[in-house]
């Protein structure tokens, strides 16, 4: 049994900001997915792909234009929490634009917190902690293979932008249930792995993409993303790639096993229910390997959320 890592890296001290962002745009995406574009210059300047925000989704405050008194009375205690989420919700950065001081998040409405978050509109304030966690290590120079399951495409979009900016070649394999439940637009320009359908945003950014769909949408690979990955790994030169994955636990577990067998290096972004988000409460753990054959629980919020695929006990 390993002993949990207790202390913080001193280089992270003071790095987490509590910033009140201003929603610039609120866009329903496909299905029950939603995009918020938020002006938060301090966090936008610092956040890296794979890092996340811890958002207090208590619903937008009364809009200034609706107010009859100024300032609005502060709701207190139970009134403030009643039927509203109490815990913050960890959400990865989807796109970032430090020059404009903006970040975007793309999320699936899956419960009280994310449903409240989807109600925010332009002009609303949103209370965020960030940047949090260890993001993707982008120091390598190998061509990148990004593998997404469902909403896992959100943090991988920020990563794709970063890697393309560095001049790295990016290939994206995405799995989805059907086109209607996929958060991003599809295009028909892709021709890799026998797929005509790719992701429009990835195409715009200069990445190559292919999609697997369980519903067998036209132009996609019918089935799971692991099917696409199998085809990819059979290609010459596949072993030169570095992989980055994000998706449901079972998908990441299978994808990691395939990547490890094929000998590719890889990083995975994990998700877990969180309390504090800053390493104190030990709620959001995953099992990882230590030196030797031992394993321990690591904190997803500060030791991750990005882990080496060989470090995680899947």
């Amino acid at each position: 049994m390993g002993s949990p890592k207790p202390t913080t890296d001193s280089e992270q001290n003071g790095s987490v900001l509590q910033e009140t962002g201003r929603v610039m745009e609120s866009l329903p995406a496909y299905g029950n997915h939603h995009i918020l574009r938020i002006h938060a210059p301090e966090i936008a300047a610092a956040i890296q792909p794979g890092q996340f925000l811890h958002i207090y989704c208590n619903g937008p405050a009364e809009r200034i234009s609706d107010r009859t008194t100024d300032p609005a009375p502060e709701p207190s205690g139970l009134e403030r929490l009643q039927r509203k989420p109490l815990l913050r919700r960890p959400i990865s950065v989807f796109r970032r634009d430090p020059a404009e001081g903006e970040i975007s998040i793309l999320f699936r409405q899956a419960g009280l917190g994310t449903e409240a978050l989807a109600v925010y509109g332009a002009g609303d304030n949103v209370d965020m902690l960030g940047p949090l966690g260890r993001g993707f290590d982008t120091k390598g120079d190998a061509p990148a293979l990004l593998i997404a399951g469902g909403i896992g495409i959100a943090p991988l979009t920020a990563l794709a932008a970063e890697l393309l900016g560095q001049g790295r070649q990016v290939t994206v394999l995405a799995g989805m249930r059907d086109a209607a439940s996929f958060p991003l637009l599809l295009d028909n320009s892709s021709t890799i792995l026998g797929c005509k359908a790719g992701i429009a945003l990835m195409c715009e950014m200069g990445a190559i993409s292919a999609i697997a769909s369980e519903a067998g949408e036209p132009g996609t690979h019918p089935g799971l993303v692991t099917g696409l990955l199998k085809m990819f790994l059979e290609q010459d030169g596949a072993e030169d790639y570095e992989a980055f994955i994000c998706g449901p636990g079972i998908m990441m577990s299978r994808v990691s096993a395939m990547l490890i067998e094929a000998g590719l290096p890889g990083q995975a972004l994990l998700e877990e229910r969180m309390g504090c988000g800053i390493g104190a409460c030990m709620a959001c753990v995953c099992r990882t390997r230590t030196e030797g054959d031992e394993t321990e629980y690591s904190r997803v919020c500060v030791d991750g959320p990005v882990f080496d695929i060989r470090e995680v006990v899947w």
């Binding site: 207790p6 202390t7 913080t8 003071g14 987490v16 800053i278 390493g279 104190a280």
Partner: peptide, 10 residues
């Protein structure tokens, strides 16, 4: 925690 993690907060 052990009083150290909160030091991450600015």
């Amino acid at each position: 925690g052990y009083g150290l993690d909160f030091r991450r907060l600015a």
